[in-house]
Simulated scan of single mutants.
Amino acid sequence: MTGVVRWDGFSADPRRAEVAGVRASDGDRETAVEALREAFADGRLDRAEFDRRSHAALAAALLGEFAPLLQDLEAPVPATLSVHDEAVRRYRREAREARNGFLTVGTITTGIWGATSIYGGDPYFFWPVFPMLAVGAGWFMKVANRGELIERHERKIARRLERRRRKDESEDPEG
Results as ranks from 00 to 15, higher is better:
80 T>R: 15
175 G>Q: 07
43 G>R: 01
58 L>C: 12
123 P>I: 13
60 A>Q: 10
32 A>G: 13
111 G>C: 11
37 R>W: 04
113 W>Y: 12
94 E>R: 13
34 E>K: 06
28 D>S: 09
1 M>P: 12
39 A>P: 04
24 A>F: 07
29 R>D: 09
47 R>S: 03
137 A>Q: 01
9 G>D: 15
170 S>N: 06
166 R>Y: 03
12 A>T: 03
40 F>T: 01
37 R>Q: 09
48 A>W: 05
141 M>G: 00
96 R>D: 07
132 M>L: 10
106 G>T: 02
112 I>N: 03
141 M>W: 11
157 I>M: 05
174 E>Q: 07
167 K>E: 12
119 Y>T: 15
157 I>L: 11
128 P>G: 03
110 T>L: 14
99 R>A: 04
16 R>F: 15
136 G>V: 03
146 R>F: 03
108 I>S: 04
87 A>C: 07
77 V>Y: 10
139 W>D: 00
134 A>I: 10
91 Y>H: 04
32 A>H: 04
121 G>W: 06
34 E>Q: 13
7 W>P: 01
135 V>Q: 15
44 R>I: 00
55 H>Q: 13
23 R>K: 14
38 E>V: 11
83 V>D: 13
19 V>L: 10
113 W>H: 14
64 G>S: 11
37 R>T: 03
160 R>D: 09
124 Y>W: 15
157 I>T: 07
161 L>V: 00
163 R>V: 10
2 T>L: 08
76 P>L: 10
154 E>P: 03
116 T>D: 13
62 L>F: 14
164 R>E: 15
90 R>V: 02
172 D>V: 12
124 Y>I: 08
43 G>P: 00
161 L>E: 13
145 N>R: 11
63 L>D: 04
28 D>C: 11
163 R>S: 07
129 V>M: 14
10 F>Y: 08
85 D>F: 05
146 R>H: 09
158 A>L: 14
151 E>Y: 04
140 F>A: 11
69 L>Y: 11
155 R>Y: 06
131 P>R: 12
55 H>F: 09
77 V>G: 05
133 L>Q: 07
120 G>R: 14
120 G>K: 07
170 S>R: 07
14 P>L: 00
88 V>A: 08
105 V>Y: 08
26 D>A: 15
95 A>Y: 03
84 H>P: 00
98 A>Q: 02
141 M>E: 07
146 R>Y: 07
136 G>E: 05
34 E>F: 08
6 R>Q: 13
57 A>L: 11
124 Y>M: 15
53 R>Q: 09
27 G>S: 04
94 E>P: 02
165 R>L: 08
121 G>I: 05
154 E>F: 03
43 G>F: 08
127 W>T: 05
22 V>M: 13
83 V>Y: 04
157 I>D: 03
132 M>K: 02
45 L>I: 01
102 F>Q: 00
156 K>I: 09
158 A>M: 08
118 I>D: 09
137 A>V: 04
16 R>D: 05
121 G>C: 13
39 A>L: 01
7 W>M: 09
94 E>I: 03
98 A>K: 10
